[in-house]
Design a protein around this nucleic acid. Structure first.
Lengths: 123, 123
DNA sequence: GTCGTTGTCAACCATTCGGTTGAGGAGCCG
DNA sequence: CGGCTCCTCAACCGAATGGTTGACAACGAC
């Protein structure tokens, strides 16, 4: 199983239908039936999708008679954003520094092809 | 198949191993073998992971003799961030100004029964 | 109470996924 | 050339996924 929350969140959003549901829920809460409406799949399938979103912490459900209004939880988005930003920044940084590194390498060696690969082990 | 890029990106990052690889690549480029090193899985499995990341646009590979140095592509992160931010903001907004306003706006639609429900409808 | 609505659970099916092993292509080195 | 390294492709396997249908619990409406 996906185990950790981040995995569950990403997995949940990997499905276009579920992303679409999130988009809809961003506008306002909706019951399972309302969520199911735009799609030609069965209500059970939608119920499953909602469960996936709920397990991921993206959605919470309350009770309203037989209905189960779904509410979008904004906090989990921060979890993703944090992860993404972290590595995006590192990658960007590294990219920005690339010129310097390349210049140095260029200066250091002539095109003897590879001699000492691996800039991989940085820091 | 997942079809669109956003789906592929999210699906790619849904796997902890692949997220880990991204984390590693954020530090610096690495060959497939170097990527495989920390894990107890076969090189072929890692190669598959790299392919998934590549198909998602998160990673690019170049040629260096037999090696295939992997490079993290920062741009795709923006695609995700954009999507996330969009709906996070909507959800947050909606949360901030509470249901009262929307419930009022929506009070007129009320289909014959149960008027009690929240602001479920989206156009 | 009975009926209709709403949603979930369970079982099943086809496909996908992450892993394996085996084969082999590409490229350096001796 | 032959051998070694690095990596990918192909086939296979078990588990998870997304969908279906059928049953049924919960609840309001009559």
């Amino acid at each position: 199983m996906a185990a950790d929350q981040l995995s569950r969140v990403f997995a949940a959003l990997a499905d276009p239908t579920r992303r679409d549901m999130v988009a809809r829920l961003a506008v306002g809460d909706a019951t399972v039936g309302e969520l199911a409406d735009p799609y030609d799949v069965s209500v059970q399938a939608v119920s499953k999708h909602v469960k996936v979103l709920t397990d991921a912490g993206l959605v919470s459900q309350t009770k309203d008679a037989q209905r189960r209004p779904c509410h979008l939880e904004a906090e989990v988005f921060d979890l993703m954003t944090k992860w993404i930003e972290r590595y995006r920044q590192q990658a960007q940084e590294r990219y920005d520094r690339l010129d310097a590194v390349l210049a140095e390498m260029r200066d250091d060696e002539r095109p003897t092809k590879h001699r000492n690969r691996k800039q991989g082990a940085a820091s």
